[in-house]
Amino acid sequence: MTYNPRKASQTVAFFALKTGNNAVNVLKAVKLVYLSDRENIARYGFPILDERRVCMKHGPVNSYTYDHIKGEVPPEYDGGWGEFVSDRAGHAVGLANEATTTDDLDELSDAELDTLEAVWAEFGHMTQWQLVEYTHDIANMPEWIDPKSQGSKTITLESMLSAIGIPSHKEHTAEMESANSAHGFLKGL
C-alpha cells in the first residue's frame, strides 16, 4: 500500500471544515475517516486511503492516519500532513490554515468528496462516543473484533470487503493488492 499523508490530512481537514469551528474531536475524526473508507469501498470498490486498519478499544481505526493525528510521526515523514492539519490540541485537531476551503483539498477526487459529504450527512451529528458505540455494534461493523488486551488487531482488506458485502471479495482483494504492488514497484518502493 502507498499511504498518502497529504490526502489523509485533507480528509481530516474536510471534517474540521464541516464542524463550523475548523476543528474536530480526534476520536470523531478517526471514526469518520474509517467510515469514509468503508463508504467509498461500498460506492466505488476501493478506499479513499491506502493504509493499515486495526481494531482498537474504541473501534476500527485507520492506523497511519491515527499516528499522524497523535503526533507520533517524525517530521521527516510528514509527507504534507502539516499543510492541512495542525498539531493536536487536547482532544481536537484543526486546520493548519484557517483560510482553507474544500477547493484546497486537491488530493481528493470529486467522487471522494461526495463520499465524505455523505458520511458527514449520516454521521456528522453524532458525538465521538455515539460513533464509538455505532462502530462497536456487530450489525454495523462485522469486521471489528474487540482486541481485548492485545491493543490492536489488523482488519484485513478482505474482511472489510466481505463485511461491506462486496461480491467476490476474495478476488477483489487480490486485484487491489496486486494493483498496489504494481503501483509501489513503479514508484520504486
Rank of each mutant, 00 (worst) to 15 (best):
M1Q: 11
M1P: 08
T2C: 09
T2D: 06
T2P: 07
Y3C: 01
Y3R: 00
K7H: 00
K7P: 05
A8P: 00
Q10F: 02
T11Q: 02
A13M: 06
F14G: 01
F15M: 04
A16P: 06
L17S: 00
L17P: 03
K18T: 13
K18W: 07
T19M: 09
A23Q: 14
V24H: 02
V26C: 14
K28V: 09
K28G: 07
K31H: 10
L32G: 01
D37R: 01
E39D: 13
R43P: 02
R43S: 05
Y44F: 12
F46R: 03
F46Y: 11
E51Q: 13
R52A: 08
R53D: 04
R53N: 03
V54G: 01
C55D: 07
M56L: 07
M56E: 00
K57Y: 15
G59V: 04
G59A: 09
G59Q: 00
G59E: 01
P60H: 05
V61Q: 01
V61F: 03
N62H: 12
Y64E: 09
Y64R: 06
T65F: 03
T65M: 03
T65D: 03
Y66A: 02
P75L: 11
E76R: 14
Y77H: 12
D78R: 13
G79C: 08
G80Q: 06
G80P: 01
W81G: 00
V85F: 01
S86L: 08
S86D: 14
D87W: 09
D87V: 11
V93W: 04
A96P: 03
N97K: 11
E98H: 14
E98A: 15
A99P: 04
A99F: 13
T101G: 06
T102D: 02
T102Q: 07
D103F: 11
D103V: 09
D103L: 14
L105G: 01
L105E: 01
D106R: 12
S109A: 07
D110Q: 10
A111C: 05
L116R: 01
E117M: 08
E117Y: 08
A118Q: 05
A121G: 10
F123D: 07
G124P: 06
T127I: 10
Q128I: 10
W129M: 10
Q130W: 04
L131S: 02
V132C: 13
V132S: 11
E133F: 07
T135F: 02
D137W: 13
P142A: 07
P142D: 10
E143P: 06
D146A: 06
P147W: 05
K148D: 12
S149A: 15
S149M: 12
S152C: 08
I155H: 06
L157K: 02
E158V: 02
S159R: 03
M160E: 12
L161C: 02
L161M: 10
S162E: 15
S162G: 11
I166S: 05
I166H: 03
P167C: 11
S168Q: 14
H169P: 01
E171K: 15
H172W: 05
H172C: 05
A174R: 14
A174Y: 08
E175Q: 11
E175Y: 08
E175V: 12
M176T: 08
E177H: 14
S178C: 12
S178M: 14
N180G: 09
S181W: 10
A182C: 10
A182G: 11
H183A: 14
H183D: 15
H183V: 11
H183I: 11
L186F: 14
